[in-house]
């Protein structure tokens, strides 16, 4: 089920005017910032469907920008996101594109920080809820509503078994799990949503125990 909590319906507390086009867009921006894991320097937002047609009216551009700047959905700085971006020296661009058969409120965000670039295709599916559809071109779906581990690793036998053993030993329950790889034995990404707040010692345990694990990012947009 996409919607499970009473606060999915009676919420979020947000700055208007649109839950899908403003609050959802802030959340997408928040996710992109967390996936990038560092301050963004350049961001490109490519909007499709209803996002593309109405983004100025709904403040979707300000909301996406506020999101990558790390502002929450109820921040009264959202209307001033352009000034906030300028003060942080963030370069940004908006474009309208056709992304083919995607949800009507979909944006492709390409964010570049000092050391890396990430690309997130995400949809705002209604009432402020969002879902990432693709991460760096891989079909990995997650919402960021639960603590989410993004594991960048090499495709090796036993990887998931090791990860799940460490999670289990540390008291974490896996709520949702997906693995995609670019090629056999090549680059792979695992997205793992858990029920418990992720503590730093879990990140250390994963890093310390799995040589093929190259990087970890944490996403959680409560």
């Amino acid at each position: 089920m996409k919607y499970q909590s009473a606060f999915d319906i009676i919420g979020p507390v947000m700055v208007g005017p649109s839950s899908s086009h403003t609050a959802g867009a802030v959340r997408i921006g928040n996710i992109v910032r967390q996936v990038l894991g560092e301050a963004p320097r350049r961001v490109k937002f490519e909007l499709a469907g209803s996002f593309a047609e109405t983004y100025r009216g709904h403040g979707t551009d300000l909301a996406l920008l506020a999101g990558v700047l790390g502002l929450p959905t109820d921040s009264e700085d959202i209307p001033n996101a352009e000034q906030v971006a300028a003060s942080h020296g963030l370069q940004y661009a908006f474009a309208k594109v056709n992304l083919g058969q995607v949800h009507p409120n979909t944006v492709l965000v390409t964010a570049t920080g000092d050391t890396r670039t990430v690309q997130v295709l995400a949809s705002s599916i209604g009432g402020g809820k969002v879902e990432v559809q693709e991460l760096d071109g891989l079909p990995l779906k997650f919402s960021g509503e639960r603590p989410t581990l993004i594991l960048y690793h090499e495709d090796r036998k036993g990887f998931l078994a090791t990860v799940s053993r460490i999670l289990d030993a540390s008291g974490y329950n896996i709520a949702r799990l997906a693995l995609e790889r670019r090629s056999r034995g090549g680059e792979a990404v695992t997205v793992c949503e858990v029920d418990e707040a992720v503590q730093e010692d879990l990140v250390q345990a994963l890093r310390g125990s799995i040589p093929v694990l190259r990087d970890i990012r944490l996403v959680y947009v409560a």
Binding site: I9, I10, G11, P12, V13, M14, V15, G16, P17, S18, S19, S20, T22, A23, D74, E76, G126, G127, G128
Partner: peptide
């Protein structure tokens, strides 16, 4: 500031 119930609109 408002609460989306279920949406802002």
């Amino acid at each position: 500031r408002i609460v989306a119930t279920p949406t802002a609109g």
